[in-house]
């Protein structure tokens, strides 16, 4: 058991290292010059002042150092929890910008991932046993799961926001409100949250339902089911076993899908101008904000790694076959 988790931790550590390095490289090798864009934003006319400002900013962000020094400094400050200063929202520290955005992203992601997984699995297992459901609703599931996140998001925004006018299509709360714990604010928050949540939920739901339906049909044909049925075990018991065994590949699927879901959430946020991490990434790219981009990516990477690790542990708890493998040299 210890060996197993030791090896897992090593793999996750390596992944983290590579991810951080790539993360540092991408903005630096991207075309564009952030200092230049800050200077043009400042709109100064005298060439001498421009030169002075350029030197100031370059030194401040450490762009005058050789690349390897920049890289080492980056690790150093990262370990101190310092992600640098945002160029777009200068001079706010990147950490503050991210902390402000994270609740919105998590508020979208966690419910949509968990609810779609639970509901999709239940529905898929249910549909596998009813022909009429299998024939009517599952094709819909195929359509849903094949739909790109942002496309469904645009469709929902158009149908429920523009045409029906039930839900707002931009922002996390009404523009005329200040964040507070008042009922009015919370209501507005929920209203703005619903459509981005629904688009994430629906796409993922279709995928889980189809996967579970296929798994259940497969399990109900398994030898142990035939044996139990031959011994007169009631369908209730058989279904319970089949469901539990069918859920195992779905747990693995969840681990594999996490990255995709996060990416989907980021795109969906952009469609709905939802002020989460996806929105930040877009702004950071548009403003050549290295530090913000780095920080946001880093946050996403760490989040996905942690979630995967949790699923790894959960898998060990639910499937005895992985546990026996750990006892030996495997």
């Amino acid at each position: 058991m210890r060996r197993y988790f030791g090896r897992k931790l090593l793999v996750y550590g390596l992944t983290f290292f590579v991810a951080v390095t790539v993360n540092w490289m991408i903005p630096r090798f991207m075309p564009g010059d952030p200092v230049q864009s800050m200077l043009s934003r400042a709109n100064v006319a005298q060439p001498a002042a421009v030169e002075a400002m350029r030197a100031h900013y370059t030194a401040m962000f450490g762009f005058d150092l050789p690349l390897w020094r920049q890289y080492l400094n980056f690790w150093g400050s990262l370990l101190r929890g310092d992600l640098g200063i945002s160029i777009w929202l200068f001079p706010t520290p990147v950490t503050d910008v991210i902390v402000r955005a994270v609740p919105y992203t998590l508020g979208l992601l966690i419910p949509s991932i968990l609810l779609s997984w639970v509901a999709g699995n239940r529905f898929g297992a249910f549909a596998a046993r009813r022909k009429w459901l299998d024939n009517t609703v599952l094709p819909l599931g195929y359509v849903l799961t094949a739909t790109p996140y942002m496309w469904l998001a645009i469709l929902l925004a158009w149908a429920f926001g523009i045409i029906a006018g039930i839900f707002p299509v931009a922002g996390a709360y009404g523009y005329d409100l200040q964040p507070s714990w008042s009922g009015e604010f919370l209501g507005s928050l929920a209203q703005h949250w619903f459509l981005p949540f629904a688009s994430l939920f629906l796409v993922a739901f279709g995928g889980w339902a189809i996967g579970m339906r296929n798994m259940i049909i497969y399990e109900l044909e398994a030898d142990y089911v035939n044996y139990l049925r031959a011994l007169g075990a009631p369908m209730r018991l058989v279904r319970r076993y089949a469901f539990r065994n069918a859920i195992l590949p779905q747990v693995t699927g969840l681990a594999l899908q996490l990255g995709v879901l996060v990416a989907g959430a980021l795109v969906t946020e952009i469609v709905f101008s939802y002020p989460g991490l996806g929105h930040l990434i877009l702004q950071a790219i548009q403003n050549q904000d290295f530090f913000l981009l780095q920080g946001t990516f880093l946050f996403v990477v760490v989040g996905v790694l942690i979630a995967n690790f949790v699923i790894d542990i959960a898998y060990v708890l639910v499937d005895p076959r992985t546990r026996t493998g750990m006892g030996g040299t495997a």
Partner: peptide
């Protein structure tokens, strides 16, 4: 009662 042909896989793999 039945002793099946597939005894090797007749038991639920995830239950003691």
């Amino acid at each position: 009662s039945l002793i099946p042909q597939y005894s090797m896989s007749a038991l639920n793999p995830t239950r003691k």
